[in-house]
Design a protein around this nucleic acid. Structure first.
Lengths: 331, 331
DNA sequence: ACTTTTTGATAAAACCTTTTAGCTCCTGTA
DNA sequence: TACAGGAGCTAAAAGGTTTTATCAAAAAGT
């Protein structure tokens, strides 16, 4: 009586049009139960003609799987989050799973609000991401019935986390410089209270030995600049290569070196960290830098949460995904 | 028989515990129907004790409103999208509405996939955003039952769009320079085939009159640099101010000016466009620039889609939201 | 020819909530 | 006394799907 409603077609429309029961229609479409091949094809064809698409709410309500997952992030600025989110989404979309994005702005009240909303929506899992790998998640996250994956963030002991392999990334950078014949490599990086900074510095020290020099500071271009000023205002041997803790720092370093008429990479080679194109493409010369493969972290986190949501067991622990070096002209 | 299931509490658990019917429980919790004040309080208290939260899927299925909206973006990199998404989310979360994020990567197949998924989930509306205001949306978007809002993107004639007010932004920039007593203002901007570039250039020309000079090029730091080289390698009067079409261009401009020993802002004042902090904070001197208030665009888009999803009527057309000037030291 | 198995299809229950219509009881009015 | 009206509550339907149990008919086996 209402075939011409402007609403969506339901499975009962399909069933009626195909002259079968709702259950048969459902079975035919999902390949469940026992269905005659001919009927199955017919139902599928008619569903197609009618443009039938199942209501995800009804399906989720019944199956207790919403085919949606939530992503909780404290990063409003998006430099880290969006590439990861894109990676997660790329994986999920192929499995018919959608992604809720929740920006918490570092506000616990907001985090709670978002978390409750996600649970109300029966999400199949939650991915927690942060702007630094050693940020603690909100405590509510720890005692959920819903699986949680930590990406670029610290999880509790029995959880699954995905981090960039900072140590390996640092080694790749240093080894590249060494392969260029550089022997006096200095490491200029960000704040020491960041775990990532410490890991990278440690890996660096292991490779360069006692001749190494680590300069902690801020994650800013300005610090890169003033670090160079420090080095060159003091006496003693000068570096022939600099490994920077971020592209921004590297940019400051390069600018300061150029101000002093030092040629890059001939006199001093420079390697950055992040491969943040807006910075690394624009330095002069363009920056050779370490790429943390954020999208790949997203991929893996997406696959992991998909697995957990299907009750698969995952080895708990931190999975460190390899960084790659992106060579431009500064080293 | 299964009160101790580890699943979530349902409204029937609440009803049973309170010794009332399901309908009464629902009425009490939602303030609908006629309920005795005492019963109402009791039900609410018990629901609270039990930690009851209604299942959004069931509710959405019945009410035909999922309390979720989708955001479709072609911007993987996130420079524009994430601030807007954060703005949208800020508004929505207070109304109990969640946000699906869909990154299409400019791939029509992916866009279709995401769009279908959103519709299957019965979203109450869709916000379409793009990386430039004159990008056409996927054609499927035009004939939906679901309300659509365009943010930083071009919608069809009868739709509602929110754009930054590029003309006003340009005027603010130029007027600021004029108020500083500058008379020879040059405009160095990006590609002419971008609508935003043309709008800004036009507003600039109206204010400076025939003495003006617009230089279209690329949206890159390099172009800013070479534009300055062009200007100073030619004879004729030199500018005392430069209005740049983006912060990146401004950065190139500032670097090139400094290379020539020109003092900023004393000899030449520079204003940028975007207030992209990673760039504008790091120029030397820090950049005075135009802020497009992306978060505010998100706010307005969120409010608009909320209104449309409640059947409210909205005046179709492009709403241009004012830009603001962020003063640092370059002008 | 009779029983057993297999095949194909279906009615009905379930998921959890909101809403409609109706029921009972009480108070006040004619 | 009878009855209207309201207050307070509830049974049941509805929303769209999947799944379980059941049933009839056809095929296979004895």
């Amino acid at each position: 009586m209402n075939d011409s409603d402007h609403g969506r077609r339901t499975i009962r429309d399909v069933a009626k049009a195909a002259g079968v029961s709702i259950s048969t229609a459902s079975n035919a479409l999902n390949g469940t139960g026992r269905t005659n091949a001919a009927t199955r094809e017919k139902v599928k064809r008619i569903a197609d003609e009618l443009g039938f698409r199942p209501n995800a709410l009804a399906r989720g309500l019944l199956m207790k799987r919403s085919h949606a997952i939530g992503m909780l992030t404290n990063d409003t600025y998006g430099r880290l989050t969006l590439p990861m989110a894109a990676g997660v989404s790329e994986i999920l979309v192929d499995h018919g799973v959608s992604l809720f994005l929740c920006a918490t702005n570092n506000d616990p009240r907001l985090a709670k609000l978002h978390l409750d909303a996600l649970l109300d929506r029966q999400v199949d899992g939650i991915i927690f991401t942060a702007t630094r790998i050693d940020l603690e998640p909100p405590p509510e996250l720890l005692k959920l019935r819903v699986p949680v994956i930590y990406a670029f963030a610290q999880g509790p002991a029995d959880s699954v986390s995905f981090h960039p392999d900072d140590a390996q990334g640092a080694r790749v950078a240093v080894q590249h410089l060494q392969s260029l014949g550089r022997a006096r490599i200095v490491h200029i990086t960000g704040e020491e209270n960041y775990l990532a900074a410490r890991i990278r510095a440690h890996a660096y020290e292991e490779l360069v030995g006692p001749s190494g020099q680590v300069m902690f500071g801020e994650w800013s271009e300005e610090w890169g600049h003033s670090a160079i000023d420090d080095i060159y205002s003091q006496s003693g041997p000068k570096p022939d290569a600099i490994f920077c803790g971020s592209d921004e720092i590297a940019r400051g370093v390069i600018d300061a070196l150029r101000d002093r008429g030092i040629s890059i990479p001939d006199d001093v080679a420079v390697v950055g960290f992040d491969n943040w194109e807006v910075v690394s493409k624009q330095t002069r010369p363009p920056l050779t830098t370490i790429d943390m493969q954020l999208k790949e972290i997203g991929h893996r986190a997406g696959l992991a949460i998909l697995g957990l949501s299907r009750q698969e067991k995952l080895e708990p622990g931190i999975v460190r995904l390899p960084c790659s070096i992106f060579k431009r002209n500064s080293a």
